[in-house]
Design a protein around this nucleic acid. Structure first.
Lengths: 255, 255
DNA sequence: AAGTGGTCTAGACCACCAT
DNA sequence: TGGTGGTCTAGACCACTTA
């Protein structure tokens, strides 16, 4: 039997206009192969010598191209093992996309409990963030996240139906791993990064009930737009965080 | 006349234990020269060929060392001009350390107005963040920041006296550029990055008065620890942000 | 032992910038 | 025009992983 994902054979690079560095052309070719599904998340790339000769470039140039994609978390290098197309897992989610931790610095993956799942329409904010028309068909999902057994975060997700056709409550709830991993495995959508805008607001009745807090208590409201390749938005969510025992954490300027 | 900052001559690298890559040894040497003051912020490095031969390494290895320091914002490369020791300016501050912008995405540098400047003592939080004893002598400073003429942020800074000896209200207020630039020029302290922890709280009387808002209105409280070389903490500040017209913004996972 | 990525060399030539 | 960093080559050898 053939392997499930035969690595594509890359054609030598010819000229591709002046001013564009060769390594960037190579990086774009690799990215295109990943986006097209020819090299799915988790799959291994041909080794660097082979790749370099397929592209007709030196190994140094090939490494510079791969290095760019590693820096943007599209690829993952593991010495002695190979280079892999990055995929979502609990660790990556925790590190890159979940920025709530206990006041004393303890980080842990949240327990997610889905409290609402229905077909609906994008509200104005979501439509704006996703670049779609308000009222477009969408999944509307609410989750409650617990840390150390305590309800700390309330999430309202809006997913455009056009990207997530065929999603069901059952598939959503019974996913084997994180939500972003589900996007990736079931819909070939890879979340690479996200923009977040944070405000302080008074908890509304909905959130207060879901999190068991007093109405009008100050809470963080985090509005996130998740992006895939080419910075195309694929998910809009509003997270409400009860701060006090837990906090929203950022390290500025690491890059 | 001699130039103000003659670039130090670097000695060839001999062995430096196994397992440590050569380029990392070179990077540490450069960093040490910067930390020691031999290459002050804004100064230009010798060109890459010369540096490589001083260290006795190939230009590729030298470039890899410099590349690491550029990635961590210690150095700055400008093609055709040279490699420079990074220094703080309004642009860098805005980009790396000021994450408040108008709800519609407009970013602008804040107008800073100092409303309190006095000698005092570190409180428990600041002492903990700075790794010093509570009650250590410190400068305590309060600023009000305006955006588009509107008071949006209230800052409470605590600076350990030991690092900022000789600071005066006059020097602080009449600094020619940003606060971090003052740290750098007057105290040889370069802020490289910062950790921030964000909570939603009700505005206290102090803050409400300074920002002209109602007491108990939900506001963001951002507690920042600013770090220099070796992740040594040098400043602790609590910023209170009125969100609504303005927001706290983050882009996750760029790196 | 075989295969992978990681480090390092000793160049050549290009693109950009100041003068 | 001369100097800078940026790109690219064609290797050699090292360190790590797996079998």
């Amino acid at each position: 039997m053939p392997t499930v994902h035969p690595p594509p054979a890359f054609q030598p690079i010819v000229h591709e206009g002046v001013g564009v560095p060769l390594y960037r052309v190579v990086a774009r070719r690799l990215l295109a192969a990943i986006e097209s599904g020819a090299m799915p998340p988790g799959s291994v790339l041909p080794n660097e010598r082979d790749l370099a000769s397929q592209f007709g470039v030196s190994i140094g140039t090939l490494r510079q191209a791969v290095g760019e994609l590693v820096a943007s978390h599209v690829l993952l290098r593991r010495q002695g093992r190979g280079t892999f197309v990055a995929h979502h897992d609990a660790e990556r989610f925790l590190f890159h996309f979940f920025h709530v931790e206990r006041a004393d610095g303890l980080r842990e993956a949240p327990e997610v409990e889905t409290i609402r799942f229905e077909r609906g329409r994008l509200d104005d904010d979501a439509a704006d963030a996703l670049g779609l028309r308000p009222g477009s068909a969408a999944w509307r999902i609410e989750n409650r996240l617990r840390l150390q057994g305590r309800a700390v975060v309330h999430d309202r997700l809006q997913l455009p139906l056009s990207h997530f056709r065929g999603l069901t409550a059952k598939r959503f709830v019974e996913r084997p791993s994180t939500i972003y991993r589900l996007y990736q495995d079931a819909f070939a959508i890879t979340v690479l990064r996200a923009r977040e805008r944070v405000r302080a607001v008074a908890a509304d009745a909905d959130v207060a009930q879901a999190l068991g807090i007093t109405r009008s208590q100050p809470v963080l409201e985090v509005r996130r737009t998740a992006l895939t390749f080419g910075d195309r938005p694929v998910e809009y969510r509003v997270s409400t965080v009860v701060t006090g025992a837990h906090e929203y954490v950022q390290t500025l300027s690491r890059h």
